[in-house]
Simulated assay, not measured.
Amino acid sequence: MIDPARATLVMIDMQRGFIDPGSALCVPGAAATVGACADALAAARRQGMAVVHVRRSYAADGSDVEPARHGTWLAGGRPLCAAGDDPSTLDCPDVLTPADGERVLVKPRYSAFFGTPLDAALRRAGVDTVVLTGTAMPNCVRSTAYDALSLDYNVAVVADATSSRTPEAQAANLADLAAAGAYVLDVAELSERGLAAMPDHLAAWPGRR
Rank of each mutant, 00 (worst) to 15 (best):
I2P: 10
D3W: 13
A5G: 14
A5H: 14
R6G: 03
T8Y: 09
D13P: 04
Q15I: 03
Q15L: 04
Q15Y: 01
Q15C: 07
F18S: 05
D20Q: 08
D20T: 05
G22R: 15
S23K: 05
S23N: 10
A24G: 05
L25A: 07
L25H: 11
V27S: 03
A30V: 08
A31Q: 09
A31D: 06
T33S: 10
A36M: 06
A36P: 05
C37I: 02
A38N: 10
A38E: 08
D39K: 15
L41Y: 02
L41W: 10
L41G: 06
A42G: 11
A42H: 14
A43S: 15
A44M: 08
A44C: 07
R46T: 15
Q47D: 14
V52M: 06
V52H: 02
R55C: 09
R56G: 07
R56I: 00
R56M: 09
Y58V: 04
A60K: 04
A60T: 05
D61Q: 06
S63K: 02
D64Q: 07
A68R: 12
R69G: 00
T72W: 03
R78N: 03
A82I: 06
A82H: 01
A83H: 15
A83W: 13
D85V: 13
D85A: 15
S88R: 12
S88T: 15
S88A: 14
T89V: 03
L90D: 08
C92Q: 13
P93N: 13
P93L: 13
D94P: 07
P98C: 02
P98Q: 07
A99K: 06
D100S: 14
G101D: 11
G101T: 06
E102W: 08
V104G: 06
L105C: 01
K107Q: 05
K107V: 00
K107G: 02
K107A: 01
P108G: 11
Y110S: 03
S111T: 04
P117T: 05
D119A: 08
D119W: 08
D119P: 05
L122N: 10
R123I: 02
R124P: 00
A125R: 13
V131D: 09
G134H: 02
G134C: 09
A136Y: 02
P138F: 01
N139T: 04
N139Y: 02
R142S: 10
R142K: 13
Y146N: 14
A148G: 11
L149A: 11
S150V: 02
Y153S: 04
Y153H: 01
Y153V: 03
A161K: 00
S164Q: 01
A169I: 03
Q170S: 12
A171T: 08
A171E: 12
A172P: 02
A175C: 01
A179E: 07
A182F: 11
Y183W: 15
L185C: 15
A188I: 14
E189W: 05
L190S: 10
L190V: 14
S191A: 15
R193F: 15
R193M: 15
G194R: 14
A196M: 09
A197N: 15
P199Q: 07
P199N: 09
P199V: 11
P199E: 07
P199R: 10
L202G: 00
A203Q: 14
A203S: 09
W205R: 06
W205E: 09
W205Y: 11
G207P: 09
R209L: 13
